[in-house]
């Protein structure tokens, strides 16, 4: 395992189907590229995310994120707020076993923001690349 320049982090991005997922489609229509080792998983709402999903994902990747609708804009009213609190819970769990909290994040965007989607994903990719491989990875 290296933290060298050849390190390509694996990232899972859980996407609300009303924002993150559509923004990814918008990015595709605009033919915008983003790092290939980012896996997208569609959720019916960011509120469907769970600490358990984050933790299971973290067993095999270097960073996880949830892409949620912008504040006050959740179709189910409070899904994005719930998602935020689950991110915080997950960060607390990672912290207590000595894994960087920054490996989990929540980002907010709207369905038409293809550019923003790429920017968010790239930023996360760069940040995790800087952090290096997840030291707690179980499945390599």
């Amino acid at each position: 395992m290296s933290n060298g320049k050849d390190f390509q982090p694996k990232i899972v991005a859980f996407c609300c189907e009303n924002s993150g997922w559509l923004a990814a489609e918008a990015a595709a229509r605009l033919e915008l590229g983003y790092p290939e080792k980012v896996e997208l998983i569609k959720l019916p709402c960011s509120g469907k995310i769970d600490v358990l999903y984050f933790m299971k994902a973290m067993e095999k990747v270097d960073g996880v994120m949830i892409l949620a609708c912008q504040k006050e804009n959740c179709k189910f009213l409070k899904g994005n707020e719930r998602a935020k609190s689950r991110v915080l819970q997950t960060q607390r769990l990672l912290k207590e076993i000595g894994i960087e909290e920054d490996r989990v994040t929540i980002q907010y965007l709207a369905a038409n923001m293809g550019n923003k989607f790429v920017e968010i994903v790239q930023n996360m990719y760069d940040k995790v690349r800087e952090l290096g491989p997840n030291p707690g990875k179980v499945i390599k």
Partner: peptide, 21 residues
């Protein structure tokens, strides 16, 4: 069941980090 899943991941990751799976 859910807490088992979460703690299971946490324990496995903590030990993987120490290099003692």
């Amino acid at each position: 069941e859910k807490e088992v899943g979460i703690l299971g991941s946490e324990l496995a990751m903590a030990r993987a980090k120490e290099g003692r799976p």
